[in-house]
């Protein structure tokens, strides 16, 4: 992904958004990763006319800002694929579910953890100005509101994960590079594995 992403935000002031909401099971019958964007948040878009994903003014927003525990529930990576396919590149929240966090990173979506009060401040700013633009600098690990004094926050990211995102690298590269170690380990570890699938 690019090291700087500048975009208006898509505000989603709701906590505990589960992956069933992000992409309902009806749309999981695919053998592809593409084309899920049109179904992102299908249920809420149908139920709430003014749901942010229905509003023209947010259509090109690349930065989703939401409340705590985003992406909880099902492990479906389709949630990350759907958001990415829609055009979301960054999700900012006070916390994420472990699995979604991992899935997002593996699909070029940067999940940024910011303090709850900062997230709420972004929501207020957005409401007040009827829109809010953010600039996310992955190299410097800063989220800022362009042109606003003190309008910035630092975020933490694991150095390995940062490298992967910047270079569009997958864990597979590192894992495959460790194959010798893995095979050595397998031989030693085999003594503690007692199930046998050959009988099936």
């Amino acid at each position: 992904m690019k090291n700087i992403i500048k975009s208006k935000i898509m505000p989603l002031p709701r906590a505990d958004i589960d992956t069933d909401l992000i992409i309902p099971a009806d749309f999981l019958t695919t053998t592809d990763k593409k084309g899920l964007g049109e179904h992102v948040f299908a249920r809420l878009r149908m139920m709430e006319g003014n749901f942010p994903f229905n509003l023209k003014k947010y259509r090109d927003a690349k930065i989703l800002v939401t409340r705590k525990n985003f992406g909880c529930g099902s492990s479906r990576e389709h949630a990350a694929w759907a958001l990415k396919d829609w055009g979301i590149e960054v999700v900012i929240a006070p916390s994420f579910s472990d699995i979604f966090f991992s899935n997002a990173m593996k699909n070029g979506i940067l999940p940024i953890i910011l303090e709850e009060k900062v997230v709420e401040w972004i929501f207020e700013e957005e409401k007040e100005k009827n829109g809010c633009e953010l600039e996310v600098d992955l190299v410097k690990q800063i989220v800022k509101i362009p042109g606003k004094k003190d309008g910035f926050a630092m975020f933490a990211i694991d150095s390995y994960r940062k490298e992967c995102l910047l270079k569009d690298m997958d864990d597979m590269d590192y894992l495959v590079s460790q194959m010798n170690e893995i095979e050595k380990f397998d031989k030693k570890h085999a003594a503690n594995i007692f199930f046998d699938t050959k009988v099936l």
Partner: peptide, 20 residues
Amino acid sequence: FGIGTTEVGHVMATGCLLQE
């Protein structure tokens, strides 16, 4: 534990995952 599809691929290919 549950994992996403990309990690499913990692386990298939290497029998391992990167984990914290």
